[in-house]
Design a protein around this nucleic acid. Structure first.
Lengths: 179, 179
DNA sequence: CAGTACATGTAATGAGTTACATGATTTT
DNA sequence: AAAATCATGTAACTCATTACATGTACTG
């Protein structure tokens, strides 16, 4: 059982989903390709942590919809109680910025402009996500509590939004430095 | 040539260093173990991107000090000109927070308290790093420009400090939510 | 004399990406 | 007719961590 396996179980506590849907919805918090997810789902099924049903679709290809079992929920609670790994970030840009003196100002500006566009798109995605959470919630978001279904998602998207704002602020600051 | 190889070359543009020292200094920007670094250095040496000399030490074990070659610098400039990979972050905590409703408030608070301590230590490390950069610089840090040796390091540590402040702010915000 | 920091390496294993493979359905 | 999205899977490869292996020198 690796971290991604528990991540899939985490998502399944809120909705039953297919492997394809899990792949799409886990992206903001843990990037993973379908080739990694499908074998893990098969493993989770063998262990009894999840169960699936075949769902026929007329408009799209059929799919396997997975649900978490009680056993899976127990496994999740055990995992949450364990010490949490420290976060890992790998950003190629930081290595390039470290030796940015090797290239001219113009090239440096272009490199950072590309990244700024990336951050802006990311911010837009989080804004849309926040709208979606609000639509699915009866309460105003700032009144959600730990017991509410959307609480976890809300506080995570809030964190992600704050962090991407910080990234964008740094980009602006860098533009001044490279003037 | 993977990203870490270019990262090692990036560090070597500022100082000649041993594998052990490279491992220590690359940590804030790209986490890597010595077992990954030593083989890559051997590869870089074979390709002519770096050269090393044996340095005998009386107080410590002897070491191999690597320097970047002109060919290595050319390789670096080519790499900087290429499109930059998007950053990847994997944080087990975000998956646990997503389904935080599975456990009680007290356990949730404890989990976040552990993370807050981690962020505070991290902030302290960046503060020390910033002091060290100032000590090695003639100019005040906010006057450094792209041509200055410490510029890249300065802007990166500035970014890291802003981001860890955001993380700490989120921890405070979460404490209110879990009251 | 035990533990820690310094120093360098290899081997085995696990995690993650890219490529291979197939096929339905909808949109352009 | 081609491209995009949905859908599931396996195979090959690269990247990263943990474990194995060895040894020096200093500190408590």
């Amino acid at each position: 059982m690796n971290t991604l396996s528990y991540g899939l179980l985490s998502l399944l506590t809120k909705n039953s989903r297919s492997g394809y849907e899990l792949m799409q919805h886990i992206q903001p918090f843990w990037s993973a390709k379908h080739s990694q997810i499908y074998p893990l789902l098969a493993q989770l099924e063998q262990k009894g942590h999840v169960a699936f049903v075949h769902v026929a679709q007329s408009d799209k290809p059929d799919k396997k919809v997975y649900s978490i079992t009680e056993q899976g929920k127990d496994a999740l609670r055990g995992w949450i109680a364990e010490p949490t790994d420290e976060p890992v970030t790998r950003d190629e840009l930081s290595l390039k910025v470290y030796c940015i003196g090797l290239v001219d100002k113009e090239q440096a500006r272009k490199m950072l402009a590309v990244r700024e566009v990336y951050y802006k798109k990311k911010k837009e995605r989080f804004n849309l996500l926040m709208d979606k959470i609000q639509q699915g919630s009866e309460k105003p978001l700032d009144q959600l509590e730990i017991g509410d279904d959307a609480f976890g998602m809300y506080v995570l998207v809030h964190k992600a939004t704050m962090k991407v704002d910080t990234d964008l602020y740094w980009c602006e600051w860098m533009k001044e430095k490279l003037k």
